[in-house]
Computed example of a mutant assay.
Amino acid sequence: MKNEKGFTLIEMMIVLFVVTILLLITIPNVTKNQKSISEKGCDGMVKMVQAQIQAYYIDKQSFPTSISDLMDEEYLEENPVCPDGSQIHIKEGSAYVEKNTSD
């Protein structure tokens, strides 16, 4: 017989088995933590909008009354929306989240 180098069928099956086990461990953890991931993404978006409100205040000496004020003055490129679809609004110089009620 020739000495051919390569993977045997058994080696390939062992690799597939290990990959399958890793996927079975990983996927439930990601889906279980999806809500927490979404909340942290939304918190980050609110903090980013709040920073733009402060920049607007420094430049204009007044707070914006709505997100559209920030967009019109190019402090924001687009309307900020949380990963779960919740809208971010401004009231009295602070950003807050209006939860999506379609859930």
Rank of each mutant, 00 (worst) to 15 (best):
M12W: 00
M13Q: 11
M13K: 07
M13G: 12
M13S: 14
M13A: 15
I14R: 08
I14L: 10
V15L: 06
V15K: 04
V15R: 04
L16E: 06
L16Q: 08
F17C: 13
V19L: 15
V19T: 09
T20V: 08
I21P: 02
I21N: 12
L22W: 05
L22E: 10
L23D: 08
L24T: 02
L24K: 00
I27K: 07
I27W: 02
I27E: 06
P28K: 13
P28F: 09
N29C: 05
V30E: 09
V30R: 02
V30G: 08
T31C: 11
T31E: 15
T31F: 14
K32G: 12
K32N: 12
N33K: 09
Q34A: 13
K35R: 05
K35W: 00
S36P: 00
S36A: 04
I37P: 05
I37F: 14
S38P: 00
S38A: 09
E39S: 12
E39P: 00
K40V: 02
G41S: 10
G41Q: 10
G41R: 09
C42H: 06
C42Q: 07
D43M: 14
D43Q: 15
D43L: 13
G44V: 01
G44W: 02
G44S: 06
V46S: 08
K47S: 10
K47D: 11
K47A: 11
Q52R: 07
Q52N: 11
Q52A: 05
I53T: 03
I53G: 02
I53H: 01
Q54R: 09
A55Y: 06
Y56S: 04
Y56G: 01
Y56W: 03
Y57M: 05
Y57F: 08
I58N: 14
I58M: 13
I58A: 13
I58V: 07
D59E: 12
D59F: 01
D59N: 14
K60P: 01
K60Y: 04
S62Y: 01
S62F: 00
F63N: 09
